[in-house]
Nucleic acid binder design. Structure first.
Lengths: 345, 345
DNA sequence: CTGTTAGCGCATTCAA
DNA sequence: TTGAATGCGCTAACAG
């Protein structure tokens, strides 16, 4: 049998309450008494049963998720994952509320954060927009003792407790490495389509991509970045234009959303095979394009992992427990058509 | 407040015990009474608090891990992950014991499984050796109601509850796809070094690799497989021989262990740059070789994920709960030097 | 400063 | 077939 508080109380010759006090290092215990208890804990090898503790505390975690609204497939997938987790966690004293706010709208986001603060949840997870007012809103949450995790898009300069998302510079570098190697000696320039340079993720991916292309494939011509605003129609137009102006186009790196437009443009121009296309995020559309060969590589961040990690971290922070960073690192998945998972997405 | 058993007892006008009976569908309740309770459960939206339930049951999970002994870096990493989980789970009423048995030794493994059965754990995780006596030993565990998951290497034809490992055919295909594309038009044959064709994982990786090479890169010459027995010294000798006999060697796929030998042979022959090398499993050595450029791609299965997944599944099966397969799928990580995680390994 | 007591939400005797 | 009472391991008033 594992030792319990009773065992250590007996061993130390004190009462339960005293044991509890030193366990939760609360004040009001003489140093000697504390010593006896700690001694008993050590010799018996006591480890606290967190489940029982939480039960006694009647502790419940209320968590707030704030996501961008809109049609972005990835974000909707993210929301679906939150709902799935929500259902799953109903039996674990964890309550999740979801709130969607207009995308890329810093003041709307700051308002939503302020409102979340009024509800006094244990923690808030937010897809951040990189703006001063958002930073301020996050500070205020933190000052109330509310844990904050940024999701997918980080908020540097803030005191958020944790970032649950991928290293976008590494993602961009990976795309660059693969693009360079896949093209080999094939001639022709490479184009980059971003969503918006106002978004931090996109800036970082671009930075990583360009760095590797310049370091390792310096002879390859990189076309100026075009911005598709994560909008399929606009992306299609832009890519169509690129193909027209550069008949020898060898590759395209699409680092934002709107992949439907990318795929449409390539296929309409009969360039699905000829152009090496690397894109981000596994969605039903991008998956189909990968299988058909129009897209050659898909870089992905696993939305389910991000959500579950955010929840774990939020709970841990709310309890003042440490987080095992290595375990919470979100990987960059690289999908070829051969290692595509069978499931959803 | 979330409804509790008391609430539903009151709502249904029965006692706690009766509620408990229908909750755990135990016999001894009239259909009408049962109906009333179920009604109350539905209207109040009751969900059982599993933590409290486990506390009351005094339930504890005892889990047995059986791993191959020996110097294989990957397996030792796996063991380290089990130990880490063990420490972490001490506070969650879960006790883990580790047992190492000689590698590739079916009868030793069968014996270990039989012994595990005597300890009557809630579940057993095992790196399987594909042999009839192992299948039988697993059956016996299952018949005692002990949950069994295979780890890393599966045991088809057995009634194991789950396999916590990667799809090795897909891994081999992925290696083939990358090899073909990285080589592009470069001339020269491709060699394959396996550990042993007696091991299922290796057979499957080979199968996937060859399939893709034949389907998509049919002009590329594939050399006959050599078997290095996962032994670095032997691998070094074999690879050295391949390089001598094939001065124009373009690529090597090492689908087993012993990567130290692979790297040594390539570097001694001055072929680190010229030959495209794809290998499996991220270890300190393989990581160094990836960074130096001797290895071009590393396919990896995350040992930490596999262990944690095995534990979750074992617990769920022991409780007769369903497993969310999608959440327990172990991915094939593809590492280039640009997306290597900073942490351990 | 320290001890007593009464639950948290559920499962499980033992009676009725 | 049903109910009352007790306890799992821990925390939290409230006394002393």
């Amino acid at each position: 049998m594992r030792p319990t508080v009773h065992d250590i109380a007996a061993e130390a010759g004190v009462s339960l309450a005293t044991v509890d006090r030193v366990l939760n290092n609360r004040p009001g215990v003489r140093a000697v008494t504390r010593g006896k208890v700690e001694q008993a804990i050590a010799t018996l090898g006591y480890v606290r049963d967190v489940a029982a503790a939480n039960l006694a505390k009647g502790r419940g975690y209320s968590l707030n998720f704030i996501l961008p609204a809109g049609e972005n497939s990835f974000m909707r997938g993210l929301e679906a994952e939150v709902r799935a987790a929500k259902a799953h966690l109903a039996s674990e004293r964890t309550e999740i509320t979801i709130r969607c706010v207009p995308a890329f709208d810093a003041s709307a986001l700051a308002d939503a954060l302020a409102e979340a603060r009024r509800q006094r949840p244990a923690g808030v997870a937010v897809v951040a927009v990189d703006a001063p007012e958002v930073v301020r809103a996050v500070e205020e949450l933190r000052q109330e003792g509310i844990a904050v995790v940024t999701l997918v898009s980080d908020l540097p300069g803030s005191t958020r407790d944790h970032f649950a998302g991928v290293d976008n510079i590494a993602a961009g570098r990976t795309a660059g490495n693969l693009m360079g190697r896949f093209l080999g000696d094939r001639a022709g320039p490479v184009a980059v389509v971003a969503g918006s340079m106002l978004v931090r993720d996109h800036r970082e991916r671009l930075e990583g991509f360009q760095a590797v292309m310049h370091e390792c494939f310096e002879t390859r011509l990189l076309l100026p970045v075009v911005e598709g605003q994560d909008d399929a129609a606009l992306v299609e137009k832009l890519v169509g234009g690129l193909i027209e102006r550069h008949p020898d186009l060898a590759g395209i790196y699409s680092l934002g959303a709107g992949n439907r437009g990318l795929v449409a443009a390539l296929e309409k121009a009969g360039k699905a095979e000829a152009v090496c296309a690397i894109a981000h995020e596994l969605t039903p559309h991008s998956r189909a394009a990968l299988l058909s060969g129009t897209i050659d590589v898909l870089l992905n961040q696993d939305a389910g992992h991000e959500i579950r990690s955010a929840i774990r971290v939020l709970k841990a922070k709310a309890d003042g427990l440490p987080v095992i960073e290595a375990q919470e690192r979100i990987r960059i998945d690289i999908f070829l058509k051969d290692n595509l998972p069978n499931g959803q997405a």
